[in-house]
Design a protein around this nucleic acid. Structure first.
Length: 158
DNA sequence: GCCAACGTTGGC
DNA sequence: GCCAACGTTGGC
């Protein structure tokens, strides 16, 4: 039996990598994640076909700005072995890479960004990880119920 | 720019 | 293995 599709949210600072960058490039490697919890999610839980909400963090307006999908399962993050790269990790052994990453592909950009402040008002999202105080996981799971509520909100904004 | 909330590091 | 110090994330 096929694995059930799962949903995720990826945070990105738009001045570093925005939904426009993803739209233009079509696909990108999600490298540079240096957090074990996030690594484990990418390596062990995410699979090709899973769907992603793309979120702009840090910079106003903070918002879910579109959708993406996983197009390649986890593989060793090449940036960890490149001394020139800011994400270089001298402690990572090429025979047993410490960091893994997935590749993601552009799906759509929402007509209007779903602002963080508005998301907070949606009852179905009251438990959403993104909106919890102190939550800073940069790739995180999204419940099916939350996914549906967010897509519904996006559709109503067209 | 501030700073609370985390995660990691390293001395012991 | 504990935990203080340090570094980073990310909302505000």
């Amino acid at each position: 039996m096929a694995r059930k599709k799962r949903y995720w949210l990826f945070k990105s600072e738009p001045n570093v990598y925005s939904i426009s960058d993803l739209e233009r490039e079509g696909e990108t490697i999600w490298d540079g994640v240096r957090n074990y919890q996030a690594r484990n999610l990418m390596r062990d839980e995410m699979r090709v076909g899973d769907e992603i909400l793309f979120y702009h963090s840090r910079v106003a307006p903070m918002a879910i700005v579109g959708r993406a999908k996983i197009v390649r399962n986890a593989h060793p993050d090449p940036s960890q072995f490149d001394p020139e790269n800011k994400y270089f990790d001298p402690k990572s052994d090429p025979a047993d890479p410490r960091w893994h990453c997935v590749d993601i592909g552009f799906v759509e950009r929402f007509e209007k960004p779903l602002l963080r402040e508005d998301l907070k008002k949606i009852p179905e999202l009251s438990e959403m990880m993104l909106l919890k105080k102190g939550s800073r996981l940069s790739v995180q799971p999204v419940h099916a119920k939350e996914w549906r509520a967010i897509l519904k909100l996006a559709a109503s904004r067209c």
